[in-house]
């Protein structure tokens, strides 16, 4: 009797169910009379079963807390980013970007002339700019400019102040722009939990608002990171200096408030 010659690889494919039906049938037929063949096929079946059961305990092992926590945090951050990024973040360039080689006199242009666009759309909350005149500047629903101006001149960075029952002002930092003007980065939370991130700079004895982003708020009150990216880009564009120390800021704010 001549035995058909089956390679180990072929027998393995048979054992793994990866062989065409015709060859599989031939092997099955041969196995009926060939114990060696049965043993060779059996080896592949056994090694698969043994490997699987040997590594089963690893699957039942609890994932170390440190790892699980780290991954869960990454997932949450990703979900938060996705929730924050889409159309709800609106960049409002109140001034066109100033090319690096253009002199600083741009900053002295009347505010109204340099307004590019104001994008609204968030219910119950808006930014509006009134013409240069008796009350130029940033207006926030339910907050008069005076309260905002006062907050800008008095609230130390890192501190908060209630402007209106549902309007919370938060000073983030004080710094100088490339022209040496004193600027303040701040946020204002609104009742719908959205947040305006804005930059105001001192020009001609008053505050000029040069940048604002409306971002959906989070439970923490702080604006999501994605919306501060626009701010970072803006700060880079105006060549903002590093935030001031508390003492320097306090001196400057006192001088401004005294005027």
């Amino acid at each position: 009797m001549t035995k058909p010659d089956f390679s180990d690889e072929m027998l393995m494919r048979f054992a793994d169910g990866e062989l065409d039906p015709q060859t599989a049938a031939a092997i099955e037929a041969a196995m009926e009379t060939d114990d060696d063949l049965v043993a060779r096929v059996g080896l592949f079946i056994e090694t698969r079963a043994e490997a699987k059961s040997a590594l089963k305990p690893l699957l039942d092992e609890p994932v170390p807390e440190k790892l699980a926590t780290a991954v869960e945090r990454m997932v949450r951050e990703k979900q938060a980013r996705e929730a924050a990024v889409p159309p709800s973040v609106k960049v409002i360039p109140l001034r066109p970007a100033v090319p690096k080689n253009v002199a600083v006199r741009h900053w002295t242009l009347p505010l109204a002339a340099s307004i590019a666009a104001v994008i609204g759309g968030l219910t119950g909350y808006w930014l509006a700019l009134s013409p240069v005149g008796e009350q130029s500047g940033l207006q926030v629903a339910g907050v008069d400019s005076a309260a905002l101006y006062q907050a800008l001149a008095t609230v130390a960075s890192g501190q908060e102040k209630q402007l209106a029952p549902s309007q919370r002002f938060r000073a983030i930092a004080t710094f100088r722009d490339s022209a040496g003007a004193v600027c303040r980065e701040f946020e204002v939370d609104s009742p719908d939990r959205s947040t305006v991130i804005s930059v105001a700079c001192r020009q001609a004895e008053t505050w000029r608002f040069s940048f604002a982003v409306v971002a959906p708020g989070t439970d923490s009150g702080y604006a999501p990171a994605s919306s501060t990216e626009a701010l970072d880009a803006y700060l880079t564009a105006i060549d903002a200096k590093a935030p001031m120390e508390a003492a320097e800021e306090a001196t400057l704010l006192r001088a401004i408030a005294a005027k």
């Binding site: 114990d35 049965v38 043993a39 060779r40 059996g42 080896l43 056994e46 090694t47």
Partner: peptide
Amino acid sequence: GISAAPAR
């Protein structure tokens, strides 16, 4: 030492 014991 895995072998296809039952068949062999």
